[in-house]
Design a binder for these strands. Structure first.
Length: 553
RNA sequence: UGGGGUGUAGCCAAGCGGUAAGGCACCGGAUUUUGAUUCCGGCAUUUCGUAAGUUCGAAUCUUGCCACCCCAGCCA
């Protein structure tokens, strides 16, 4: 990781963030290896693919300059945060393939953050306010009108200090008082209208327990934590642009040098994919999914369980770019990255989801055939596959009433059994209801893969497994995904495509299957998948419905 | 109606005064023992939200206008 560049030269900037950093380096503010970032999740849920972009930006930028990136848990609100989430976050970062220089928490800095608050009070830059939350709201003004100053704004330093210490000592109830920065109630930027920087919260913190009953607000704590960690460039998403003046105010007022610099970029959005922790949490809590790592979830652990390689996620992040324009990627872009990676790296296996017995009437005994594990990679090697008289093929690969351009097995037709022989349909058996229960075929001995001298042309190639030697597999079936705007109402439903029947959380790959032993493998039948999607535009939750849908037309 | 941002193809996105990169998607065609892959070709040329202006020359500079996003938590 990290591009190499000669000492004294700057790496080529590939996005606006790197341009800014290059300028900072060029103007002597810092040396490349001093670049430091941080990935700052709040431990109140699992990481999702949107976080993957943030990690790519933060870890990637630091690596590019030979600098460092910390893992920083933003745990300033004990009412929402849990240790379970910090463990899961750590695991997901490692799975994605990133390593942090240092792991720290906002709570590590509670003491200095508190001391800085006293410093603000001493210098007359903060005051204890007795207004209720409601009153503060009512005096903040509106977007077009200035706010009015708190009647407590001009308390003496001594009184403020006394009150603040009493707040810390637990003398007051939640919401009874708060500490506010003294900035400008008439600022056109609402964030600067004497923002609350400390609130009273008699809640147990997942790390500090009951040591504190006052907790700093994000806007106040973040610049301090950045500074104390040595962060030089604090990369965050666009919605914090309005907060940058406050970020800078804290740094300047407290005399930080060098002062960390906040740079904002657009967060990741993907069509039809819910990227809101709030809704994901709701799905989990209401039991609509099996958990945060349900394969239908856009969480990193969900993607992992879906069989999506971390490298593909990283590749996706690198290809979508980093910019400030609000945007929404098509899901197909992500799929392309996954397919590309899987095609190059995934070992191929034949699998049958809906088995139909096929008997090779003129074949006796068994024989071993070589099967390339990955035809795009010579080094992948081969596996032995046993061919015999009794096979299974996919039910949908045989048709008595084939649609036009049906290349697979049909009445009186031939098809190649992948990597084995060409077979000709000789007949079939049905049950009382007329359903096909068995296909009878003859094989052409001269058509063996790799040494075909038969001269017979088979347009179609289908998968098969040996009925006597195959490993039982189980395709995990999931209920089709959310069907209406039940979750999240309007916001959620707005994410629906006009054409899609289901809202989905991103589950669409047909190559999810799970072996009985629990080892996931991929069925890389992207052809079916594409075809199906073009025809129906449906969101598919598992392989069976995918193939059924394919057969419909 | 205040402030902060953003507008380049269906979707991402380069471009930073010298005559519109690349990827995804899509459309042709070739090869193919995965209808996959691979490969070739096409895909903004009265055009860079729009209207004027500066300039030999503008997506790039100036001005006006339009559209969209974010902000009035003791959330992050």
């Amino acid at each position: 990781m990290g591009d190499n560049f000669e000492a004294g030269t700057l790496p080529e900037a590939t996005n606006f963030i790197e341009q800014i950093i290059n300028e900072d380096i060029a103007t002597g503010k810092l040396r490349p290896e001093q670049v430091q970032t941080r990935f700052p999740p709040e431990p109140n849920g699992y990481l999702h693919i949107g976080h993957a972009k943030s990690m790519f930006v933060n870890f990637g930028t630091a690596a590019k300059y030979g600098g460092k990136c910390n893992l920083f848990f933003d745990d300033t609100n004990p009412s929402k945060e849990k240790t379970e989430f910090v463990d899961a976050i750590r695991a997901d970062i490692r799975w994605l393939g990133y390593e942090w220089a240092r792991e720290c928490y906002a709570s590590d800095f509670f003491t200095p953050i508190y001391e800085y608050a006293e410093q603000l009070i001493q210098t007359g830059k903060a005051f204890v306010c007795d207004l209720s939350a409601e009153e503060i709201k009512n005096t903040r003004g509106t977007l077009t009108e200035p706010g009015v100053e708190s009647p407590y704004r001009n308390r003496t330093v001594e009184e403020n200090l006394k009150l603040f210490r009493e707040m810390r000592a637990g003398k007051y109830a939640d919401g009874e008082k708060c500490l506010r920065a003294k900035i400008d109630m008439a600022s056109p930027n609402v964030n600067m209208r004497d923002p609350v920087i400390y609130r009273i919260l008699h809640a147990s913190h997942h790390r500090t327990g009951d040591a504190w009953c006052i907790y700093p607000m994000y806007d106040y704590a973040h610049p301090i934590c950045d500074y104390l960690q040595g962060v030089t460039h604090s990369l965050c998403t666009l919605e914090f642009e309005d907060h940058r003046p406050l970020y800078d105010w804290v740094g300047q007022t407290l005399g930080f040098s060098p002062k960390p610099r906040q740079i904002e970029f657009a967060r990741l959005n993907i069509t039809n994919t819910v990227m809101s922790k709030r809704y994901l949490k709701k799905l989990v809590e209401e039991g609509k999914v099996h958990g945060w790592d349900d394969p239908r979830m856009p969480t990193l652990s969900g993607l992992r369980n879906r069989g999506i390689p971390a490298a593909a996620v990283r590749d996706f992040c690198s290809r979508i770019g980093i910019a400030k324009a609000q945007s929404e990627c098509e899901y197909s872009y992500f799929e392309a990255c996954v397919r590309e990676y899987l095609n190059a790296h995934a070992e191929r296996a034949m699998g049958i989801v809906d088995p139909l017995p096929l008997t090779v009437v003129n074949h006796e005994g068994e024989e071993e055939l070589d099967f390339d594990k990955n035809p795009t990679d010579e080094g992948a090697g081969v596996r032995k596959v046993t061919f015999g008289k009794h096979l299974f093929i996919e039910r949908s690969d045989f048709s008595l009433d084939p649609p036009p351009k049906y290349f697979r097995l049909k009445k009186d037709g031939v098809v190649r059994l992948k990597n084995a022989y060409i077979v000709r349909c000789e007949g079939w058996n049905t049950d009382a209801a007329g359903n096909v229960t068995e296909v009878l075929c003859s094989y052409i001995p001269e058509s063996r893969s790799g040494s075909d001298t038969s001269g017979v042309k088979a347009k179609g190639v289908i998968q098969w497994v040996n009925a006597d030697a195959c490993v039982p597999a189980e395709v995990r079936k999931y209920e089709s995904l959310l069907r209406d705007a039940e979750y999240g109402g309007q916001d959620f439903s707005e994410r629906m495509n006009e054409n899609s029947e289901h809202i989905f959380l991103g589950c669409a790959e047909p190559y999810l299957a799970e072996a009985a032993e629990g080892a996931p493998f991929q069925l890389l039948r992207t052809g079916y998948y594409k075809t199906c999607r073009e025809k129906g535009g449906l969101v598919l939750s598992e392989i069976v419905s995918l193939k059924d849908n394919f057969n419909k037309k």
